[in-house]
């Protein structure tokens, strides 16, 4: 009798356990890692290209608010975007030997648009100059860019969107791990959330992990 109740209850629970937030906006990312002659990471350049829906909405609002001078509107909207992203560390996570390292504020940025297949895509360029410069051969560096809430899916998609600058002599390559969230990691991340409210959401499970492999 008891087992029957238990079975039914487990049945209902297993049906209802599939809850995730899901993305409504996509950002295509490009990351370029700038090295110096000692194979130290000195800067990270990022390119964020928003999807067509978000771009259309953002640009229409922007022209409405700051227009009609497009260049001025992009400049003002870019300032707003960078300052609001600043509280979220630009959704960027850099770890050196598994210790988080701040990338600070972008030393340069530009909000603009690019035409892709006839559509105007909102595009943000940001350059982060690092305060301390870890050696990519001696340390284990990991880079990931994600929205914790997973409202926005941020993806490099392909290794082609990753590059090392001045890395010819370092013998290093950049690799990307595409996440494969399992039930266990999802459960783990959910339990993490209760203590660490800032990482609430499951975006971390779908975050790409970028590392360097050196000869």
């Amino acid at each position: 009798m008891l087992s029957k109740y238990l079975f039914s209850i487990i049945f209902i629970i297993s049906l209802s356990s599939q809850i995730y937030a899901h993305p409504h906006t996509w950002i295509n990312l490009q990351s370029t890692f700038g090295l110096n002659e000692n194979a130290e990471l000195i800067e990270i350049k990022q390119k964020w290209q928003f999807d067509e829906f978000y771009s259309a909405m953002f640009i229409a609002d922007m022209l409405n608010e700051f227009g009609p001078d497009r260049d001025l509107a992009f400049t003002l909207a870019g300032e707003n975007m960078v300052s609001s992203l600043s509280d979220y560390q630009y959704f960027s996570n850099l770890t050196v030997d598994q210790v988080g390292m701040s990338i600070g504020q972008p030393s340069e940025y530009l909000l603009t648009s690019e035409i892709v297949d006839g559509a105007e895509m909102l595009t943000m360029f940001m350059t982060f100059t690092l305060a301390s410069t870890p050696n990519i051969k001696d340390t284990q560096i990991e880079w990931s860019v994600f929205d914790p809430t997973y409202y926005v899916a941020m993806i490099h998609t392909d290794i082609e969107n990753l590059a090392i600058e001045n890395g010819q002599n370092s013998g290093c390559m950049v690799n990307m791990d595409i996440p494969e969230p399992s039930q266990e990691t999802i459960a783990y991340a959910s339990s993490l959330d209760k203590e660490q409210t800032e990482t609430q959401g499951l975006g971390i499970l779908f975050a790409e992990k970028i590392r360097f492999g050196c000869l």
């Binding site: 937030a21 906006t25 609430q200 959401g201």
Partner: peptide, 22 residues
């Protein structure tokens, strides 16, 4: 379970609407 689901989804929605820079 519906109370729990509603609560969890509410939390996620709040997280997005209050704390989303984009």
């Amino acid at each position: 379970l519906l109370i729990f689901l509603g609560w969890s989804l509410y939390q996620i929605a709040i997280q997005v609407s209050q704390n989303h820079p984009l």
